[in-house]
Simulated scan of single mutants.
Amino acid sequence: MGEGEGPESSNQPDTRISSPFSWRGDSYPSILDSETPDHLSRIRDLGIPYIFDIHTHFFPETVMKLIWRWFDNVNWAIGYRLPEAERVERLHHNGIQRFTTLNYAHKTGMASSLNDWTYTNYKNWKGAIPFGTFYPEEGVLAYVKKAVEEYGFLGFKLHCEVSKLNLSRPELADTFLYLQEKQIPILIHSGTAPLPGEFTGIEFFKPFLETYPKLKVIVAHMGASEISAYASLLDTYPNLGLDTTMVFVDFLATGKAEDIDRSVSYLETYKDQIYFGSDFPNIPYNLNHPITRFLDLPISDSAKQKILHQNAENLFFK
């Protein structure tokens, strides 16, 4: 599938079967040239005006293509290999009217330029909530302050696996203290799925949270594949949250099916601390799949309303 073409369906099954990541059952959610977002009537019936997706990615085109190349190498089909403007249209088409601009750096000197790029472009993406990133390097606090105080960014994203990032690096202490004081949320990929990293896992995350107990942190993928370990921290740390990104779907890249099934109860118990996320555009299925699967879960309407909409609204605009 070339840049600018629609989601591809003709050769997906063989590609998916050869992927190192497994699927539930024998069938795969389709990637179609046209979507039918039949979930829209269901969210209206719940009184949800629109979905707030807290985990969507925006990178400069050259970087995004490199990311897609990595996914190609592990036979992870990219469902939305589309130009940027068309990707935003697909979000709106699926009832997602607010979404984050997540990106992250994997080397020195990259984070500040990503923040500049996001600031220059995010107003072109209707509904975008601007997120920055940072990296353990000289000047990190200065460009984080610029992102907050000059650019008006509402959050930050870190990826411990890709960035080989130890959250306890001393170079980041002042930055974390600043964000804790300002109550600016950080969305952190610190879990060991789909692939573990040198500094991923609850053994690295828990000491970090103990150091900054009032920091607003959202753990990507509910901490998969250690969901129960991360969920066990929610009572102690009221500013901690989890996002549902790629958890309750048929593509099992973030944990075993039995562990995911056992995690459904957390959505009810901690419905005020969990946020809906999709990982768009880097998903191997239509965007309606994670939404429909979430709506099908045996949890209360109140939990669905909070997770799909209210919690993120309160996080940024309360």
Rank of each mutant, 00 (worst) to 15 (best):
Q12A: 08
T15N: 09
R16T: 04
I17S: 14
I17K: 15
F21T: 05
F21H: 07
R24N: 01
P29N: 01
D38Q: 08
L40Y: 03
I43Y: 00
D45V: 00
G47V: 06
G47F: 02
H55M: 11
T56Y: 06
T56W: 05
F59M: 03
P60K: 06
E61A: 00
E61Y: 05
V63W: 11
M64N: 02
I67V: 04
R69S: 13
W70D: 12
W70I: 15
I78D: 03
G79I: 04
I96C: 07
R98W: 02
F99A: 09
L102D: 07
L102E: 10
N103A: 05
H106E: 10
S113M: 10
T120P: 01
K123L: 11
P130Y: 10
Y135P: 01
E137H: 03
G139I: 12
A142F: 07
A142Q: 12
E150N: 15
G155Y: 08
C160Q: 00
E161K: 13
V162I: 15
K164E: 11
L172W: 00
Q180N: 03
G197Y: 12
E198M: 13
E198H: 14
G201V: 12
E203L: 05
P207N: 06
P213M: 00
L215P: 06
M222H: 09
G223S: 11
E226L: 12
S228T: 15
A229M: 14
A231K: 11
D235G: 15
N239D: 11
L240W: 07
L242V: 11
D243Y: 08
T244R: 14
V249Y: 11
F251C: 07
F251Q: 09
T254E: 14
D259S: 15
D259I: 11
S263K: 13
Y270E: 14
D279G: 09
P281D: 10
I291E: 10
L295P: 05
D301V: 00
S302Y: 07
Q305L: 03
K306T: 06
K306Q: 07
H309Q: 07
H309Y: 06
A312C: 10
N314A: 13
K318T: 12
K318N: 14
